[in-house]
Design a protein around this nucleic acid. Structure first.
Lengths: 351, 351
DNA sequence: TTGTACGCGTTATCAG
DNA sequence: CTGATAACGCGTACAA
């Protein structure tokens, strides 16, 4: 592949002139321009993005670091980032952080060493202070979970409110034993959702029972074990609040056949087509990704340069049909909407 | 952030020596090494990957270009590529090609200009000859769909066999009117699956009816319209073969309430939890991504340098419960396996 | 209008 | 064992 030097030689001009022609600099004589353009075409010149990038020290790339790119939530988020990036001629470098929080720093720093322009990340580790030394050079924007030990832009969702609304919804159906099933209390979103769950219980005057909080339904087996444990309890719960979409997906099969009602945080593909259709707190990964990417680009361009801002996005409670009255005998679940969308029951106030 | 020059100054040595120490070159006196290492630590030296990359003209990056990164099939594939890449200290640049095939070249070339080491792509355009000029510099590996107008490594799946097996499965349940619903006949996978469908019909001695082939159920509305059209037909079909997972996902809601049986090409999350649980031709996006990435790396390293090879991966027909006998009156569908996996009915021979 | 010189950070070459 | 120098491709600053 030819470089500007090759073109320059062919056109009998200096490299700089080639550069000018290629970048539409007006200060070139039409006839010189013509000669250069011919050479450009003949040699099939293709710019080496790497060289430009190296020169100005920063790569037109937005990094996306998420727990798992195969998770529908994060792949939607990544796609949104990608769409925004494309609008600025930027590319997206993705990295899955994996299940082990201790791996986060090395994975992220490997990304950062590539001189990214910006990094959009959903952290898995309990501390991000190791990113301080990078924060001058890169636009850091957090999504889904706020950073710890670091002050940076951040877009999260109303975990507390959504969990409270969903739990309240279950309680309103007469369930007074509602279990909380989540992934890990090391994740701040789970902690906040647990708080929302507890708030709803407190508001309904129902005592919090620690034995109804279970973490680790992060696999098919884990989900079966969890359900078995819950239904085996002396005073077994009649409903479950699932704290995240992954957990819901594992829980659904395990719950089949049981008479437990369920509401979950996080929608996922086909949730509306299950039997029963899952009532969920709907997040908006697309908005999350879009907003984060836009903020990142604005920081990059220097359009925005104030103190970091933390923004909480609203969530919505979508009623479908997985929450049945506790005293219902037959199969008379409320019908799901035919379009699969669910009925809007509640939205984070102020949205 | 400090560079090698800073470290060199601090340690009173030349940059080259710093480079040697940093890269574990044995030809350094222990005492010099010590000095340099201290300086390295003190100044918190972090290599600029971009510079190295620029220097050797090729970036330790694998590009992944797929129709849509938010599609579960492709996000799994991307994750597999990422996992392999990580093992070689490489990163992954993802790009969604989008629904418009004519955009493919510009998107892909923007990626290529970044001097990628390799590109794993699932093409959307009908012709890839524009990639010829890149094929010397980059390891090009195609997945899911073979390249046209270009000879390159390629990993696809047994579209013909899978579609034939699924269609035959429907026919064996007594359905003689089986519709084919797909996305677009511009996509080679769809073409091959249509061939498989027709082969199954032919083998069963059933006439092919063009009006039973519908393309464009690529949205909720499209799916409803498609189903409406099919059931409104004079000699309406009693079963549907869905040619891809996206189509299946849209089709499922539209089919609810109808009495049509369905089998689909491509598994997807929760397909086993639907009612009825979907019988599908199971692909393996993970294997596809892993194999493609590994081939790419081997080409890069020059470990492998023969002519391009096209490999077809086997697929499996997983019976769940969405194919009912045509003459069945009640709701007596065969039960789905409790673990949601489905019963293995058929595998591409020679796997 | 055009060209020359220089630098970005790193590594290879080759001399000392 | 160590260091000076060149080179990668491009763009900026400054001259001519």
């Amino acid at each position: 592949m030819s470089t500007m030097r090759d073109v320059a030689r062919q056109a009998q001009v200096s490299v700089k002139t080639v550069s000018r022609v290629f970048n539409d600099d007006p200060h070139v004589l039409p006839e010189t321009r013509q000669r250069v353009e011919e050479a450009l075409a003949q040699l099939n010149y293709t710019p080496n993005t790497l060289a430009r990038t190296f020169r100005d020290g920063r790569s037109p790339v937005i990094g996306v670091a998420v727990p798992n790119i195969a998770d529908p939530f994060f792949s939607s988020l990544a796609k949104a980032v990608e769409t925004v990036a494309a609008g600025y001629d930027m590319s997206v470098l993705v990295s899955s952080l994996g299940p082990d929080p201790s791996k986060e720093p090395e994975v992220v720093e490997a990304l950062l060493r590539r001189q990214l322009g910006a990094l959009v990340m959903a952290p898995t580790a309990p501390d991000q202070s190791y990113l301080r030394r990078w924060s001058e050079k890169v636009a850091l924007v957090f999504v889904d979970r706020p950073p710890q030990g670091l002050d940076a832009d951040c877009f999260i969702e109303d975990d507390f409110g959504g969990a409270r609304a969903a739990t309240r919804h279950l309680l309103e159906h007469g369930h007074d034993g509602v279990a909380f099933v989540g992934n890990s209390l090391d994740v701040s979103t789970t902690v906040n959702r647990l708080s929302g769950y507890r708030a709803a219980l407190a508001e309904a005057g129902i005592a919090f029972r620690p034995e109804l909080v279970v973490n680790g339904a992060t696999s098919r087996e884990g989900a079966w074990a969890t359900v078995a444990r819950l239904v085996g309890l002396a005073d077994a719960p009649t409903a479950v609040f699932s704290s995240d979409a992954q957990t819901s997906m594992f829980l659904v099969p395990a719950l089949a056949g049981s008479r437990l009602s369920i509401a979950g945080f996080g929608d996922f593909p086909m949730a509306s087509m299950l039997s029963p259709a899952l009532t969920v707190v709907d997040q908006d990964p697309d908005a999350l990704g879009r907003l984060a990417a836009e903020r990142a680009v604005r920081r990059l361009d220097g359009v925005e340069d104030g103190a970091p801002v933390s923004t909480t996005l609203p969530v919505r409670l979508l009623e479908r049909s997985s929450c049945r009255p506790v005293d219902l005998e037959g199969g008379l679940f409320p019908a799901s909407r035919p379009d699969g969308a669910g009925t809007l029951l509640w939205v984070t106030p102020g949205a």
